[in-house]
Amino acid sequence: MEGNCVNENDLKKQDPLVVVGCAKGYTKEELLSNLPRHCKFSPSLIKQVKLIPEAIFRNSGTPIAKKINRMMHEMSTEAYRAIQFTRTEINNRGVLFGVVMLKHRVVDRVLIYFHERWPQCIICLYNEQTRETWIIDEKGAIRQYHQPLKKVVENVSKNRQIVPYFEDIQFSGEQIFETLYKSQFIAERENKQYFKKMIPDQCFKLPGMKNGVERHFRNKKLNDFL
């Protein structure tokens, strides 16, 4: 961190957090490597970031710092929300697939999350926003296809063997989850405001939303994409 190499005489002029080395926000390296993921990224923005000192971004005081930090926040939030709310299915050959709706280029982060959980499976995610299917294989290699999800899933499943313990869980789980979800409700504790706070706005706007929020996070069936 910058704070370690700061002259003591200049301490008073500096942002205290940078001095201590526990400042909020992102390092310049993080900004430079992650900003291109944002959908509204432009090369001129990177030029600006290179010129401005890190402490200014960390303080979020200037309009440009606010803008950059907001962009970083939007990306990380979108990736995290996708990790939380993407609903997936697995077939008997160990191919896990689901649908995401990502504006920013963060699909690799979501793929890696699923890859860590299902390391021996191939993960296929269809991005509704860009109409592309992304896959990550057992070795962690990421590829992109301009094909519908069903086709990609069929293709990657072709040469894979049936796995007995995945074969075991080939039944519909939607109703099971709905029943479990309903069973946990405690009327005396209902707090709609808090509930709305926890569910991000963009998730309320997902396609096919009707009656209740949970319904909308569930993964679509393959037929829906044909």
């Binding site: 990790i83 860590e116 021996q120 409700f185 504790r189 209902e190 707090n191 709609k192 926890m198």
Partner: peptide, 24 residues
């Protein structure tokens, strides 16, 4: 085993919230 599935994250992840706002 090479076949393991699942992972436990150090911060935990919430996949759904009940109408009382609790993470489920």
């Amino acid at each position: 085993s090479k076949n393991w599935v699942g992972a436990a994250a150090s911060a935990g992840i919430c996949h759904s919230y009940t109408p009382d706002g609790r993470c489920m």
